[in-house]
Design a protein around this nucleic acid. Sequence first.
DNA 1: CTCCTATTGTCAAACATTTCACATAGAGAA
DNA 2: TTCTCTATGTGAAATGTTTGACAATAGGAG
Lengths: 211, 211
Amino acid sequence: MVRKISSAVIRRLPKYYRYLDELHQSGVTRISSHLLAQRMGFTASKIRQDLNCFGGFGQQGYGYNVDNLRAEIGEILGLNRSCKAILLGAGNLGRALINNFKFSRCGFELIAAFDLDPAVVGTEINGVPILNIDSLDSFVEEHHPEIAVFTLPSEVALEMAARLEKLGVKGIWNFARHEIRPASTGINVENVHFEDSLMTLCYMINDKKEK
Amino acid sequence: MVRKISSAVIRRLPKYYRYLDELHQSGVTRISSHLLAQRMGFTASKIRQDLNCFGGFGQQGYGYNVDNLRAEIGEILGLNRSCKAILLGAGNLGRALINNFKFSRCGFELIAAFDLDPAVVGTEINGVPILNIDSLDSFVEEHHPEIAVFTLPSEVALEMAARLEKLGVKGIWNFARHEIRPASTGINVENVHFEDSLMTLCYMINDKKEK
DNA sequence: CTCCTATTGTCAAACATTTCACATAGAGAA
DNA sequence: TTCTCTATGTGAAATGTTTGACAATAGGAG
């Protein structure tokens, strides 16, 4: 019987990983739920509850072994599998990701980007070849990337998602303005909404002002 | 008696705004909670419950007036106040935001960016002047921007947040790897975590694969 | 080896969010 | 105007998440 892990817990795993990694970097080898809670701004109880979804990683009277816990969470997230990723839309944001974002830290390897601007097609950015969007289908059929990063214009995002789903792509990391909702359960979508995020901040500062 | 609005509701407001804007663009003037729910992938009940936190915007037997509801939500979010924003760190991501992101849509106006690279300081990107980080304090004291966008190296994010808080900045839109937790209740932070988001997607595709 | 202390794993209570169900108000047709 | 039907607003139930409390277990001191 595999108990379903709640999405609230899943969304916290990367944070745990990040903080544990940081502790690891600074040479800390053990940590109690209480201390970790203090650092992360959670309650100790929540942390213990979360970690227990996956098994008893801790030891009573001792706490958690930082390296071990970090490795376990990395394993749960699947960060060590180095899945292939492609990127669609080598505009400003796309190029920023190609140049700076550490895909490998998140379990991916960026193998190619696609665009239709002749000025960039055929070039390479940070070791990643920029290919013509026309060659997308054949490329995907040959290399079977697991996910696609959408840094393309909103208007084409939906049809592109459908196209990639047919080609067997498993996930979309979507930066386009309009969110993509998976048509079937076959594809996973993670939307990153800059506007939503900034609007929320707008609400927060205006809300405070009124008081 | 002002009832506290739950943060789950607040986080959905930008989505409502986005969908209503879209409906508005396509000339739709009225919408029922049921139809909107279908579009957004929510339940009709949730939508009615959410909107009712702020007052009865709908009419029985008719539904909601698209323009009116959009305006009301915009008002609640504070999108029409055009608060001033500055950006710290004109690297790849910073420049991508300066060039492409529609701050005005989210209720802000980007008035300046700061960096320490002499190659960009003194130039202008998309009409936004890039200033030397040394002039930050005096600039903030003179122009009183409401928020700062953090597209700077993680290492300096925390100290910079403290510095800006002292200067009276009300909010931080943080893209740095390490999240910023507000030291006091005086400043609001909205963290955008690319890595967390992609790791979550990593989990999702690996999770599906096992079945 | 024994005791004391720290800290987990876990159950239950508190709290938050979502869904359901339906009375009721208004729109629109005749 | 009157009737019917649609769709809201809302209280209550169901579900999901977080917190609190504590028994039990292992570490480490003496």
